[in-house]
Amino acid sequence: MLTCKDFLKELSDYLDEATDRELRAKLEQHITECPNCWVITDTTRKTIKIYKGMEPYPIPSDVESRLMRALEKKMAAKGH
């Protein structure tokens, strides 16, 4: 029998589908019997989903122009 603590240790791999079939079956069995772990699994899955692919803010234009200037300087130096 899996305890909640055992379950939580495997939660990441479970959500990433990185566990073997036997362990996966045990974990699935646990969440059908444990409402708390079911909620934790569901809300952790939603947490990952909401962040996945979150686009970075565009880089501020002053930061970008300083970066490009520094690079151009470097490129000019390397080119000759």
Partner: peptide, 14 residues
């Protein structure tokens, strides 16, 4: 670390 990060964020977002 990923497991703990995910659980902590889940906690905060909940």
């Amino acid at each position: 670390r990923l497991l703990r990060a995910r659980l902590q964020l889940r906690e905060k977002l909940t």
